[in-house]
Design a protein around this nucleic acid. Structure first.
Lengths: 333, 333
DNA sequence: AAAATTCAGTAAAACGCTTGCATTGCTGAT
DNA sequence: ATCAGCAATGCAAGCGTTTTACTGAATTTT
């Protein structure tokens, strides 16, 4: 009752050829006579032979596996990206090792290392922040890496994202134009480039172009959760905000529900534009107006870029910026 | 400018020991003199040596990797399970290869095979249905498999779930007791055991115990999507339903919004109990009453069970049934 | 018809590690 | 001293592929 795996060697013997020949037909190498190929394929089928990918990986130094570091699969924003990644990966015959990091830089480094130990051919990193420790690991490794839905100010690695500055500026402007003069910005930690350097910048630009003063008390750092948003509405109200540009859909739904629970009418008395256009925006009532990042595409394009890098093809640009829209629904006037 | 990976051999030479000894310290084998261990560790550190997991896998026939087949990461129900799986996997030093199947049995078989080719030590399968083709592959393979959040009527493989019959019965009963006499059941394809054999059974039992007749026109097969739910409400209304037990949260939110959009008051004129208690239930307004399956735990326990199987420990029971609750919110009276 | 070229296939060396078995020192008991 | 017993190490045989030479035969060129 042994494992009794059949190896390439068994196939070779049974087909009266050498293992090299079997290897060739398995790998589609053309240097095999059709008759031989046919015979080998028959034997493979008969023996139900399945090449051992681990041995293959050792010999060829390719695992056809890529590592994916994700803050939390449970967050729609990231899972949408992940879905795009996986689909393209599958298309190119790669598999994905998925690891949750909780945006904890220690976990990230740790996970990154086990991924590299597993000899992944490439890596996709998601997360709002690129801590110094992880950045250091990045530059130390020769494995191709691309960021999905995140920004690398240093452009050390590949990345796919949208123009966050422009997006937030557009959203803010739309709110200002509809008559809301007290527009708040709700985002993640300002220390993270995507929030502090990009979103905040877009927000300020919009204010400036509208000739409005920048008021720090209208900028809110929030955790990425529904409950955080729910609790935040009171503060928003206290600060006199009449509208908000929100960085995360869950938080936005929280704010919306907070408003509703407080008897504030949306969009009549309070307007909201959120940022990720996940399914949540449609599920909420009223439905949420949102910056429309092509989440699935960001993931897909990131993976596609990675395949090119793994293939050592020439890359036009390490950083790919996808377009965005604003999908107007019912949380704005 | 070669890859120039440092191998166990380099470490051995540098530390003046054999590779076997290095291997021992790397693997925490106690048969090493502390002094030697220390020296080896120093060299490892100095050379920045990182064991090649692929080679390790080939030699030891263990990859410390498990395959996870998931219908769609983007669905909260499954991503919640996945999160539980990943967390305990990490805890036990396993990594996860995640593959989306879209519940397409052809894709499932295909994915299963590449996973096995990659020599995963175990497999977790999620999905409502276990097609014959996949079941066949299951029984053919010696790799431990466990189902998470799904039911295997044949108990061929391990599985972790809740008692769906009892859960739906309880939900239906609660609805009946609150005065709703026309309770509908909205679920996935009845051809799938979890829906047809379990949920429907629970539904019928509740009716029967309440002395109500079973009316086929109150049972709805629905796709698993928000939009399907949204569209379904009209039919529900036409069929005269005054309440519904729904099998999926997205669908439930759809029905809820459908009702709201049609000006029907929930819960006054229509009650809803959904099944998965994902975050969505809290985000909806009114918040949804739900069967409370411990999603994260189901995933976690499934993975734990799998570790035991991979470890060839004795298992008390292949099938683990977790408890459930009904969390009452605002979509019921 | 000899030489050059292509084609199919073979043999065997990696790939980087684990592990069973053998070996070497020691230690304490005889 | 001698030796059993044990701890600490080394040796080398795999693990299942890919891949690099290399060989002989068949085909083409000159």
């Amino acid at each position: 009752m042994e494992k009794q795996t059949i190896t390439i060697y068994d196939v070779a013997r049974e087909a009266n050829v050498s293992m090299a020949t079997v290897s060739r037909v398995v790998n589609g190498n053309p240097n095999v006579k059709p008759a031989t190929r046919k015979k080998v394929l028959e034997v493979i089928d008969k023996l139900d032979y399945r090449p051992n990918a681990v041995a293959r990986g050792l010999a060829s130094k390719k695992t056809t596996t890529v590592g994916v570091i994700i803050p939390d699969v449970t967050n729609m924003f990231f899972s949408s990206l992940a879905r795009g990644i996986d689909d393209v990966a599958t298309m190119y015959k790669y598999n994905i090792i998925l690891a949750n990091s909780d945006e904890n830089s220690q976990k990230e480094v740790q996970v990154l290392n086990t991924l590299l130990a597993k000899q992944v051919d490439g890596l996709i990193y998601m997360g709002n922040d690129i801590s110094d420790s992880i950045r250091q690991e990045f530059s130390r490794s020769k494995t191709p890496i691309v960021l999905a839905g995140s920004v690398d100010p240093d452009e050390q690695v590949g990345s796919v994202n949208i123009d966050y500055v422009a997006a937030v500026e557009a959203a803010t402007t739309q709110l200002i134009n509809s008559g809301s003069k007290q527009v708040a910005l709700v985002t993640g930690q300002l220390a993270q480039p995507i929030n502090g350097q990009y979103r905040l910048k877009g927000y300020k630009q919009a204010l400036q172009k509208a000739g409005l003063p920048y008021d720090e008390s209208l900028v809110f750092e929030s955790e990425t959760s529904y409950h955080a948003g729910l609790a935040l509405f009171a503060q928003l109200q206290k600060a006199g905000a009449t509208a908000a540009v929100v960085g995360d859909d869950e938080v936005a739904v929280g704010i919306l529900d907070g408003a509703l629970d407080a008897g504030v009418k949306v969009p009549d008395d309070f307007e909201i534009i959120t940022s990720n256009n996940t399914k949540l925006t449609e599920m909420a009532r009223p439905q949420l107006t949102s910056i429309d990042q092509p989440l699935y595409d960001i993931g897909a394009v990131a993976m596609r870029l990675l395949t090119k890098m793994m293939n050592k093809e020439d890359i036009d640009a390490k950083t790919i910026r996808l377009g965005f829209d604003i999908t107007t629904r019912k949380s704005t006037r």
